[in-house]
Structures are given as structure tokens and as C-alpha cells.
């Protein structure tokens, strides 16, 4: 296992004291595989990613549970030790490349900085290595790009630069937080394709964070559906998409307009999407029982007071639902 998260609880600040943001989260991610963490905003996806990276914002704490990277417990590490791991054994690709890159430094300098910090190569070779990496992610004229500034790049190209910075120290784990949300559909497909290619070359594990279940299916081997800080369903991509076992997963799938091609397109489109009504309850105002209780169309009496535990729905496929 590259990444093993077990029974993780994260608490965050609120006006009435600390509240649980992520509850009892368990993830397992072997090398060269991709796990997608799917859910709406406010479900705790990004906080989970930041906690793994040791980048939790002020006021947020891991209260219990363990995060192991390649067998090493991360929650006990000091700031300095964490800093040594970041970039070297785990790296993160952020949603908005424009704000994640430094606007006043050339792209080349930002990449060589990572190479030199983690002593990936001697300083004399850093430039050549960075240019080679820029070529590897599909940028044309990498020598010229090396000395360009981020504003000279299009959104897709900037995200490619982010990919270079993530892979340049050859980390075991890449966390991609909504890497394609800010991009056009065509560029989205390209970036997901690029991530897959980089993964097949380096064998890194990818934790993909997204709210788009269908986009996640392009890249992910497994899906974990998160709602209000708790795991609703987890399983192999095909199993979750073909036979979603949790009402929330079904809701997410139903609420996304699916492209219908060929003869399906002629059948006509249902006038309304099966939207999930309401919104994610904020931390601190989550139901006592099942987190999805307040929006679930199939809620039972039991669901209000008792929290369902994950039950097996198929090989490696689990869902936390009484039904």
C-alpha cells in the first residue's frame, strides 16, 4: 500500500467550538492505481487531501486515526520532516494552476527549485532535466517554455506545468485536487489522459479529488463517494457506476446530464434531471444517524438515529446504507 488512511477524524473550527469535518475515513491505495474521492463541495474531500499532505489550514486538526505513506506514519511527523516528504514522496496538483504557480517566477525556475530542493539531480543538470520534463508532459518547444512566465500559458498548459512540478521528484503518491474543473472539456480529457500516461511511466499512486463522478470514471480504478465527511460507498469504478448501492451515489449519477449518442439521442431527453434536493449540511449540523438522512429519498426511521456501517455489496464493493 502506498497510502493507507485508517479511521481518520479531522476536526475544524466553528462558532460553537471544534466540529468533526471528516469522520472515520478509511482509504487504501496501492501503487500504480488511482482512487477517486467524489462528492459535492463541503463534503471534506479537499480537507482530507490537505491532511495527508500535512497542509491543514489553521484551526483544523487530525483528532484520531492514522495516515501511512509507504508504511510510514505521517501524523506524528514534525513540520520539518513533513516538508521533506512533500514534493519528494507525495505531491499535489491544485485545482487552479494560475493561483498555484508563482506569477513572477519563470516556469523553469519553479521546476528547478523543486529539483534542487529535493536533490533530484546536481544543479548543473537541473535545467536539462526540467526541459526534458516539460517535453514529457507534451509541451511544444520546451526550451522556450522553460523561460516563460505562467501568464504566457493557456489553462491547459499551466496544468501541464503543475503536473511536471508534481512528478519531478518521482513521488509515490500524487494528489490531484479537481485538476480539470477549471478547464474546457477537451483540455480536461487531455489532462486526465496525461495523468494516466505519467502514472504508467512512474507507477505512482494517484488520489483524484473531484465532484464529477463521470470524469472520475475516466481515470480511476476505484471510487470512494464521500458525503458530509463520511464514506457512503466505495468500490471498483465499474461496479459503483453500473450498480450504485447508495442513494447518494445514485443521486449524483442521476443529477449529471449524461451524453446520449447514436440512437439514444433520438429517444429524447427526460425534461428534468433527478437532482438531489437541498444542500450538504455544514459540519456541526449534520444528522445524528446517517449523514445523508436529510436529503435521502429512501430514508427509513432507523436512518435518523443510527449511523449505518459499511456493508459488502459485492467484491470489494461496500456501501453504508441500511437498505
Amino acid at each position: 500500500m502506498v497510502l493507507a488512511v485508517e479511521n481518520l477524524f479531522i476536526h475544524g473550527p466553528s462558532s460553537s467550538g471544534p466540529v468533526a469535518v471528516v469522520e472515520s475515513l478509511t482509504l487504501a491505495l496501492p501503487a500504480a492505481t488511482t482512487l477517486a474521492l467524489v462528492g459535492e463541495s463541503g463534503c471534506g474531500k479537499t480537507i482530507t487531501a490537505l491532511s495527508i499532505m500535512g497542509l491543514l489550514p489553521p484551526g483544523f486538526f487530525i483528532t484520531s486515526g492514522s495516515v501511512k505513506l509507504g508504511g510510514e506514519e505521517l501524523t506524528f511527523l514534525s513540520k520539518t520532516e513533513l516538508r521533506q516528504r512533500r514534493g519528494k514522496s507525495m505531491a499535489m496538483i491544485f485545482q487552479e494552476p494560475m493561483t498555484a504557480l508563482n506569477p513572477v517566477m519563470t516556469v523553469g525556475r519553479q521546476i528547478t527549485e523543486v529539483l534542487l530542493t529535493h536533490r533530484v539531480c546536481p544543479p548543473s543538470q537541473a535545467r536539462d532535466k526540467a526541459i526534458a520534463l516539460l517535453g514529457q508532459v507534451g509541451l511544444k518547444e520546451p526550451e522556450k517554455r522553460f523561460s516563460s512566465y505562467p501568464h504566457e500559458f493557456s489553462g491547459g498548459m499551466r496544468q501541464r506545468v503543475m503536473c511536471v512540478m508534481a512528478i519531478c521528484a518521482n513521488p509515490q503518491l500524487i494528489i490531484a485536487d479537481e485538476p480539470t474543473t477549471a478547464l474546457d472539456a477537451t483540455v480536461q480529457a487531455q489532462i486526465l489522459e496525461l495523468l494516466r500516461e505519467l502514472q504508467s511511466q512512474s507507477g505512482a499512486a494517484i488520489l483524484l479529488i473531484t465532484h464529477n463522478l463521470l470524469a472520475a470514471s475516466i481515470l480511476a480504478d476505484r471510487l470512494t463517494v464521500l458525503y458530509a465527511g463520511s464514506v457512503m460507498e466505495t468500490g471498483p469504478t465499474a461496479a459503483v457506476l453500473n450498480s450504485p448501492a447508495h442513494p447518494y451515489t445514485r443521486g449524483l449519477l442521476g443529477s449529471q446530464p449524461r451524453l446520449r449518442l447514436g440512437r439514444d439521442a433520438l429517444c429524447g431527453i427526460p425534461p428534468t434531471l433527478a437532482a438531489i434536493s437541498g444542500q450538504v449540511p455544514p459540519p456541526g449540523r449534520r444528522p445524528l444517524g446517517c449523514a445523508f438522512f436529510s436529503r435521502c429519498p429512501q430514508a427509513l426511521k432507523d436512518c435518523r438515529d443510527n449511523r449505518p456501517h459499511p456493508v459488502s455489496k459485492g467484491p470489494e464493493h461496500q456501501a453504508a446504507c441500511f437498505r
Binding site: 459535492e40 463522478l213 443529477s255 433527478a274
Partner: peptide, 11 residues
């Protein structure tokens, strides 16, 4: 917008 909210707004 988020996927789930998208559906509400489209409807």
C-alpha cells in the same frame, strides 16, 4: 457549480 447543484439549476 457543483454537479449536484448543476442539476437543480438546469431543472
Amino acid at each position: 457549480l457543483d454537479a449536484a447543484v448543476q442539476a437543480q439549476i438546469l431543472n
